[in-house]
Amino acid sequence: MDAFAAQFLDLEVMQRYLPDIIDGLWVTIALALLVIVTGLVLGLALAVIRAFQIRVINLAIVGFVDVFRALPPLVILVIFYFALPIIGLTWSGFVCAWVALSLVLASFAEEIYWAGITSVHKGQWEASRSTGLSFVETLFYVVLPQAVRLTIPPLTNRTIAITKNTALASVIAVQEMLTVAQTSLAYAANTSPLTMAAIGYLLIFLPLVILSRWIERKFAWKH
């Protein structure tokens, strides 16, 4: 047990690397927030554009969304980081991770919003249009409020799952929490920094996971 504690919970090591880990934690949080905002907004925009049913544009959206849902996020990240410089785009690792993960979240979010929009009954469109509201007004005042309600539980789960992928940014040298922990681990020859990082992730994501449970119950019960 002592050997275990010395290897995984060495307080002296932990104290030494705590400031570095906290720096990494902030990078992780910043990246996560950027990805959530960009991904959810872009996803909603795509779903709204898709509602206009313009054939060419819809094909493009579906194609984009399918590719980013089918490819592993790490593959996308690596391609962005290693292949984009060849065509002249030299983004930092942070920007690469931000853009790549945002596109992934946007794709999943678009599908969920779209499923929500199509699930709103046709009669809702007709009732609204019959009172003189335009297509866009109907979409925003009548259809989206109902669609978004339906989409909140799956969207929350998906957002958490994709935001956890910020840890993948360690592969492309972003100084987020996992990278810092791995560097410290190498220096200290001790696993305790990684334990700290794990605790850091729990601090961020456990409340969100519990929140998602609560949301699922609340929304399931309303129906």
């Binding site: 050997a3 275990f4 290897q7 995984f8 958490i160 956890k164 992928n165 910020t166 840890a167 993948l168 360690s170 996992l178 791995q182 681990l185 020859a189 001790n190 696993t191 990684l194 334990t195 990082a197 794990a198 992730y201 729990l202 961020i204 994501f205 456990l206 969100l208 996971v209 519990i210 449970r213």
Partner: peptide, 24 residues
């Protein structure tokens, strides 16, 4: 369930892959 849904799989993997050998 909540513990493993909160930890990114990569962190878990690295923890197991590098942690256990250091532990012997």
């Amino acid at each position: 369930v909540d513990f493993f849904r909160s930890i990114p799989p990569l962190v878990l993997l690295i923890y197991i892959n590098y942690g256990l050998p250091m532990f012997g």
